[in-house]
Amino acid sequence: MNVIVIEDNKSIRDMLCAYINAKNHNATCAENGKNGLELIKQKSFDVLLLDLAMPVYSGYDVINDMIKNQLMNKIKVVVLTASSISNNEEKNLLQKGVKQIWRKPIEPNELISGLESLNSV
């Protein structure tokens, strides 16, 4: 499974990528939405692990851009966020094509099993 992680916090970003790689998957990290989007356009990924709260270019912006570029069909998007978002926001994201919404903090095993089950669908 090819996973792209867009997360502005270095510590978390490195951690996630390291663990996913350790679990025999291919993880690519992007430190901001713009870079991440570029990478998505260039390469093919199975899953996008997207942080919402990012400065300048948030996770929402990434999603909207992906919709514009019709990239939502090409990749399964999972939102991983520390923010408490409302039911309406959740609905909105899911309608836009986001597959799952996970909360930080997440357990390692939950993370991996979640990604794997998502990919197998």
């Binding site: 510590s11 951690m15 996630l16 025999n24 520390a82 923010s83 930080k104 903090p105 357990e107 095993n109």
Partner: peptide
């Protein structure tokens, strides 16, 4: 809230991650 909780995620994650035999 965001700032306080942010570090806890890596702390917990790493603590669990290390215990994984793959690590």
């Amino acid at each position: 809230s965001h700032e306080l909780k942010t570090p806890l995620f890596p702390i917990k994650f790493h603590a669990k991650m290390i215990r994984d035999p793959d690590f």
